[in-house]
């Protein structure tokens, strides 16, 4: 399988008054065409900023300080705005968390769809409108012709997210970055949206980076799984392997705290403590202060090296040895 997106040693830092915040630190991963990568982490772990970095839309005071992002072999880091703009929405699309906020409330759906096509192609209004109508139909919106001239507030949350997905798919991108696209939705709608995205991606061969804090959501969806903690990827591998045999204690903690892995009557398993401030990261392993398997050497050195084995990697000196429950 050819590599579609190759991210190497990406670092995106925010230069705030309080100091430099390394939101994304030395992150590397790659996705093959048509693959789905689950990018998992708590809020503040840097998963959203990773997505924004790939789109090239990190807002100041943040910026990509080093690393490389290659799409089909083309380097994106350092690209000027005009060239990067041609890639956004066209070859890489992004879906955001809250469909209530993603669509501009004062513009008609058709305006927001047609402008997307016109930003990348010279096309007549009629032809563009035709494509928008088809796109709405493809994501399961009934009577797309009428809905085109509606405003966002006339849709329900689930329908709005469908519209957003339709916009993301308009130009048949080879990669979609989905940033928690179902978190703001009801559980039943969530399942519908996930099924819809899966179907569309399979039909068009689109690769997906599915950013989420919810392991349960990505487990049935992704080919590979990358777990982020405090701006770094601390474990990565095939979804099945990571879920069944997590090596990093943090991944193990995440899995253990899933309600489904807990027994009735027992207290919920949880990871003690809280994520460290990115402004004052501990020495050595960032997870060490919360880690049950911590040993002395964990809290020494600047960072912990990454171990590679059998197509997976982890960043831990004393990895978990037993299988997950």
């Amino acid at each position: 399988m050819s590599v579609l997106l190759d991210v190497q040693n990406l670092s995106t830092h925010f230069f705030t008054r309080a100091g430099r915040v390394p939101a994304v630190n030395d992150v590397s991963f790659s996705i093959g065409a048509g693959q789905v990568l689950g990018l998992v982490g708590e809020s503040g772990s840097g998963k959203t900023v990773t997505g924004l970095s790939i789109m090239g839309i990190v807002d100041p005071p943040g910026r990509i300080v080093s690393g490389s992002i290659k799409l089909d072999g083309q380097e994106l880091v350092g690209l000027d705005e005009a060239h990067w703009r041609k890639i956004r929405g066209n070859r890489i699309a992004m879906i955001f968390q809250d469909p209530m906020m993603t669509l501009n409330p004062v513009l008609r759906i058709e305006t927001q769809m047609i402008e997307t096509i016109k930003a990348h192609e010279a096309i007549s209004d009629d032809a563009a409108r035709q494509r928008c109508r088809e796109a709405l139909g493809n994501v399961g919106i009934p009577s797309p012709e009428e809905r085109l001239s509606a405003y966002p507030h006339q849709f329900s949350g689930g329908m709005r997210q469908r519209v957003v997905i339709a916009i993301a798919m308009l130009l048949r991108p080879s990669l979609i970055i989905a940033d928690e696209p179902t978190t703001a939705l009801d559980v039943t709608i969530q399942a519908q949206i996930i099924a819809q995205v899966q179907k569309l991606a399979a039909e068009t061969g689109t690769a997906i980076v599915w950013v989420t804090h919810d392991l349960a959501v990505v487990s049935g969806l992704s080919d590979r799984l990358a777990v982020m903690y405090a701006g770094r990827i601390i474990e990565e591998g095939a979804t099945e392997q990571v879920l069944n045999f997590p090596r990093h204690p943090y991944t193990r903690g995440l899995l253990d705290s899933l309600p489904i892995n807990n027994q009735r009557g027992q207290p919920l398993n949880q990871i003690p403590g809280a994520t460290p401030s990115l402004l004052a990261l501990p020495k050595g392993c960032a997870f060490a202060p919360r880690c049950a398997l911590r040993q002395e050497d964990c809290e020494q050195g600047s960072i912990v090296e990454t171990f590679h084995k059998e197509g997976r990697r982890w960043t831990c000196l004393h990895p978990v040895q037993d299988r997950a429950r």
């Binding site: 993603t102 305006t111 930003a119």
Partner: peptide, 29 residues
């Protein structure tokens, strides 16, 4: 700060379109 501006950028719109249509129309009201 709104997501619709972010989404507009993610769609690959030019900044003149984002400012002239997406932002201006919202602040004009």
């Amino acid at each position: 700060l709104q997501d619709y501006v972010r989404f507009a950028r993610a769609k690959g719109l030019s900044s003149s379109r984002i400012i002239g249509v997406h932002i201006l129309k919202n602040i004009l009201i």
